[in-house]
Design a protein around this nucleic acid. Structure first.
Length: 269
DNA sequence: ACCCAGGGTAACT
DNA sequence: AGTTACCATGGG
C-alpha cells in the first residue's frame, strides 16, 4: 500500500540538506519537490513546514528514508548546544536546516574518491555517468553501481565517465573491497581512527576523503573532513583550535560551516 | 591564458 | 617531517 507519508523534523531544509555537497544524486523538480536515489532506492520528497513528505511510499520505504534523513536525531538540541559558540551561532542562522544524511558506506566512499580536487557540479556529473555506465536501469533512472559490477570493469570501461586520474583510484577501491582485503561491514564497527586508517589503504583515499566517507557513509559525526573551504574557515574563525562543544559535534559543525562560508562567498562575489 | 575545485601521491629536501 | 610538481577535466 503506497501513500504520501509525512515525517516530522522541525526546521529541516531539503534544499540545504540535499545540495550542501554531502550527496550528489538529488535534483529539484520544482514546487519544493525533489527526487533522487540512495543506492538503488528512488524517492520523490517534498518540503513541508517542520518536516518532509515521502511520496508514494510504503512502510518499508518509510523506515529506510526516516533513517536516511536522520529524522530521529534532535537537531534542534544539537544546534542549540552549538550556538553557545558565537561563530557557530552565526553559521547556523545562515545555514540552518542541514541534516547529516545516513548514506551507504560504499556509495559515499566511491563518491568522495571522485570528489578530490574537483568541484561539486562536476562530481555530480561524473557520478551520474558512473550510474548510467555501470548501474542498473530502473523506471526512474539508474541505480548506483554494485560493487561486483564495478570490480569487473577495466580502465576502458571507465572512459565515458571522464573521471581523469581518479579512475585508477576507483578501480583500486573496487578491487580491495571485492577481494575482501577491506570489509566495509567491519569498517562500520571500528573506532573512527582505525576505520580511517583502514580506508586509507585504498590508493587515492587520503585523510580528507576517508573522513568524508566516515561522516557521510558511516555517520561518524566526530569525523572532521578538512577541504579547502573548511581549512579557510578554521583559520579565520578558530585560529587557536576548536572549542569543546564544536569538537563534540565536529561533523555537523563542519557541514554548517562549509555551507556558511560557501554561500557567504557567493553572496559577496 | 590562468586559476580553481569537498586532494593524494611520489619525489624531493 | 615538511614542501612541491603533477595528476584529468571543466567552469569561471
Amino acid at each position: 500500500m503506497k501513500n504520501d507519508i509525512f515525517l516530522q523534523s522541525n526546521g529541516i531544509s531539503l534544499e540545504k540538506t540535499l545540495f550542501c555537497g554531502q550527496a550528489f544524486r538529488w535534483e529539484r523538480t520544482g514546487g519544493g519537490k525533489f527526487q533522487g536515489f540512495a543506492l538503488d532506492k528512488y524517492i520523490v520528497v517534498s518540503q513541508e513546514e517542520n518536516g518532509i513528505i515521502l511520496h508514494n511510499a510504503d512502510e518499508t520505504e518509510k523506515a529506510f528514508w526516516s533513517n536516511y534523513f536522520d529524522i530521529q536525531t534532535d537537531y534542534g538540541a544539537i544546534y542549540g548546544e552549538l550556538s553557545q559558540d558565537e561563530t557557530m551561532s552565526r553559521a547556523i542562522k545562515a545555514a540552518s536546516g542541514i541534516r547529516i544524511l545516513r548514506q551507504d558506506g560504499f556509495e559515499a566512499l566511491i563518491s568522495f574518491i571522485i570528489s578530490q580536487n574537483n568541484n561539486i557540479k562536476r562530481i555530480s556529473g561524473i557520478i551520474s555517468r558512473l550510474c548510467e555506465t555501470f548501474g542498473e536501469k530502473t523506471a526512474n533512472g539508474f541505480a548506483f553501481p554494485t560493487l561486483k559490477r564495478l570490480a569487473k570493469a577495466n580502465e576502458e570501461a571507465f572512459a565515458p565517465l571522464r573521471a581523469g586520474f581518479r579512475t585508477r583510484y576507483l578501480m583500486d577501491a573496487a578491487r580491495l573491497i571485492s577481494s575482501g582485503e577491506i570489509k566495509l561491514e567491519e569498517v562500520a564497527k571500528m573506532d573512527t581512527d582505525t576505520a580511517r586508517a583502514e580506508l586509507m589503504k585504498i590508493k587515492g583515499v587520503g585523510i580528507k576523503v576517508a573522513d568524508c566517507a566516515l561522516l557521510f557513509g558511516f555517520y561518524r559525526i566526530d569525523a572532521l573532513p578538512k577541504d579547502v573551504w573548511i581549512k579557510r574557515a578554521l583559520a579565520e574563525f578558530y585560529p587557536d583550535g576548536l572549542p569543546p562543544v564544536v569538537e563534540k559535534y565536529a561533523g555537523i559543525a563542519q557541514q554548517v560551516l562549509f555551507e556558511y562560508i560557501r554561500t557567504r562567498e557567493k553572496a559577496t562575489v
